[in-house]
C-alpha cells in the first residue's frame, strides 16, 4: 500500500518537474543568467511552504502515518564538502541543465540522450565512493 502511495508521489513529482519547466535546460540557463524570476519564484515558494511544513512537524511533534515520530536528520557540520561538492554539482547542473530528479523525469519524457547523463552520474557517484577517503570533507 505504502509503495503505491510512494509511486503516486513520484508520478506527481515528475509531472510537477515537467510542467514547472524546472526540468528544462532553457529555464536553468535563464536562471544562471538572472534573466527571469521563474526559477527563483519556484524555489522561493517551495522554501516558504517547505519551512512552514518542516517547522510545524518539528514544533508539534507530528507523527508519521506509521505512528512513528518524524525524525529529520541534521546535516553534519562541515564547510569544504558542501562548498566544493556543491560547486562541482553546479557545474554539471548548468552544463546539461538537469539535476538528479529531472534526469529521471526527462528519460521518462523520451529524451534518449539523457541516458548518457544518467550513465555519467552513476560513474561520478561511483568515483566519489572510491575517492571519498582522499577528499577534504
Amino acid at each position: 500500500m505504502k509503495k503505491i502511495i510512494l509511486l503516486i508521489v513520484g508520478v506527481v513529482f515528475g509531472i510537477i518537474m515537467y510542467k514547472s519547466e524546472a526540468a528544462s535546460w532553457f529555464r536553468i540557463y535563464e536562471m544562471f543568467r538572472f534573466e527571469s524570476f521563474h526559477m527563483y519564484g519556484i524555489m522561493g515558494t517551495a522554501l516558504f511552504f517547505g519551512i512552514i511544513f518542516t517547522q510545524a512537524i518539528k514544533k508539534f511533534k507530528i507523527k508519521s502515518i506509521d505512528g512513528e515520530p518524524i525524525r529529520i536528520a541534521n546535516k553534519e557540520k562541515s564547510f569544504y564538502r558542501y562548498i566544493i561538492g556543491g560547486t562541482i554539482f553546479g557545474l554539471g547542473w548548468a552544463l546539461v541543465g538537469a539535476c538528479p530528479g529531472p534526469i529521471f523525469v526527462m528519460i521518462g519524457a523520451g529524451f534518449i540522450p539523457m541516458l548518457i547523463v544518467f550513465a555519467g552520474a552513476m560513474l561520478g557517484t561511483y568515483l566519489y565512493g572510491v575517492l571519498k577517503d582522499k577528499l577534504p570533507h
Binding site: I88, P100, F118
Partner: peptide
C-alpha cells in the same frame, strides 16, 4: 552529456545532496 553527468554524480554525493536534498529539504530544516 557524459561530463555533465559525471559532475552531477560526483558533486551531489560529495556535497551529500542535490536540489531536492539541500535546496528544498535542508533549507526547509
Amino acid at each position: 552529456l557524459l561530463v555533465g553527468g559525471l559532475l552531477i554524480g560526483f558533486g551531489t554525493r560529495y556535497a551529500g545532496g542535490c536540489t531536492s536534498g539541500h535546496a528544498i529539504s535542508g533549507l526547509s530544516n
